[in-house]
Write a protein that binds this DNA or RNA. Structure first.
Length: 371
DNA sequence: AAACCGGGGGT
DNA sequence: ACCCCAGGTTT
């Protein structure tokens, strides 16, 4: 039995039943592949159903607004995936007659589709003989063949690509790729792999060397950035007297691009209350404020991400309609219902949710704070 | 090549 | 506390 015969036999018996399995609808397979980038299947599967229900085909996605697309993506993270999908959907409708190009070489030119996704789509949907290497595949191959090369360097990746290409059967390329991934996530797991039940235990070089945990070889060490976000909840009354507050849309190439948040003062360290209200940002906002009422300033809340540790706190403020006019130039006024429909990062969702109580504080001018 | 981009779950 | 997840883009 060849490697692929052994693997495909295992796959025929043990493969998982996933919603997009067996589909040859390029759109749905594409949606599943993008959602599953750096995302566990258990977490992504609900998003997949919601996404294809909200946007049943490429035209529905192309005609939607970016806000709508990001809203469906809310809570999943790596939001550039959603922005790129939206752009690619519009590109395919505008320039490709609404159909995906049918080769990995052309697919990889689309925004948000890299080497892995192009290969996965082409092999699954168009039966192209090209290996799709994700984290699972790197791990499986690295262990069975004791590959010494690092998986996060270009030469190392090339080695794995060539190895996978040699193992690939002439038929069923898409199932071969998915079989490697299923096998990696179900048997050849990152920790506590099921080597005793493994179909490759007689040929696995890492197992023979009792060094399964040494593979795959990685070089990259991640660095975590510390950030301090001071969010302001400026509460005021709207045109009809309803409770409203100010928000803004994040721009620039930073985290949560094009998503909504509260007015933000970012600092390089934790500020005291006094320092917040003597900060140039605040003084420029309210050159001569009189009516601002301080509510509560929450203790810093830690939002732990892969590459950042965000220390966020919320400053509750009640402002007069006069002061609100000053803010309208820089921020957008919304009520709770309006804000609910806008895409926002998890952190903002949490902050606003626990900020339901109205501020009952004192005027800044009574606080003995130098402003 | 290295940095950047979320959030969650497993151990 | 640390690792990893059906990776990709930007610098």
């Amino acid at each position: 039995m060849t490697f692929s015969d052994t693997l495909l036999k295992w796959y025929d018996e043990h493969r998982r039943n996933l919603p997009w399995r067996g589909l040859h609808d390029a759109y749905r397979v594409w949606v599943s592949e993008i959602i599953l980038q750096q995302t566990r299947i258990d977490q992504g599967i609900g998003y997949y159903h919601r996404f294809v229900e909200t946007f049943p085909d490429i035209y529905a996605l192309a005609t939607a607004s970016e806000d709508e697309v990001l809203r469906v993506w809310q809570g999943l993270g790596y939001y550039s995936r959603a922005r790129n999908m939206h752009e690619t959907a519009r590109n395919i409708v505008a320039n490709h007659g609404g159909s995906f190009p049918q080769s990995s070489a052309k697919l990889i030119k689309l925004k948000g589709i890299g080497e892995y996704t192009a290969a996965a789509l082409a092999s699954i949907v168009f039966n192209e003989n090209v290996p799709a290497l994700d984290g699972n595949v790197y791990r499986v191959l690295a262990r069975i063949f004791a590959v010494p090369h690092s998986i996060d360097t270009s030469p190392g990746k090339k080695t794995f690509r060539e190895l996978a290409m040699q193992l690939m059967p002439d038929k069923r390329p898409g199932e071969f790729n998915q079989a490697l991934m299923d096998f990696g996530s179900m048997v050849c797991k990152p920790v506590n792999p099921l080597c005793n039940d493994c179909i490759f235990q007689d040929q696995c070089l890492a197992l023979q060397k009792q060094s399964v945990d040494k593979y795959p070889v990685r070089n990259i060490k991640r660095k975590v950035r510390e950030r301090y976000f001071n969010y302001f909840l400026f509460q005021t009354n709207g045109p009809a007297g309803e409770p409203c507050f100010f928000i803004q849309k994040r721009t620039g190439n930073d985290i949560w691009k094009n998503m909504y948040e509260l007015p933000l003062l970012e600092t390089s360290s934790q500020l005291s209350e006094e320092e917040i209200f003597s900060n140039p940002w605040w003084k420029a906002l309210f050159p001569a404020e009189k009516d601002v009422l301080i509510g509560k300033i929450t203790p810093p809340m830690l939002h732990q991400l892969t590459h950042q540790r965000i220390h966020a706190r919320l400053i509750h403020l009640k402002i007069s309609s006069g002061d609100a006019k000053i803010l309208r130039n820089r921020f957008r006024l919304t009520d709770n219902e309006g804000f609910n429909e806008l895409p926002k990062p998890r952190l903002i969702e949490m902050l606003v949710m626990q900020a339901d109580e109205m501020p009952t504080g004192t005027k800044i001018s009574d606080c003995n704070i130098q402003t």
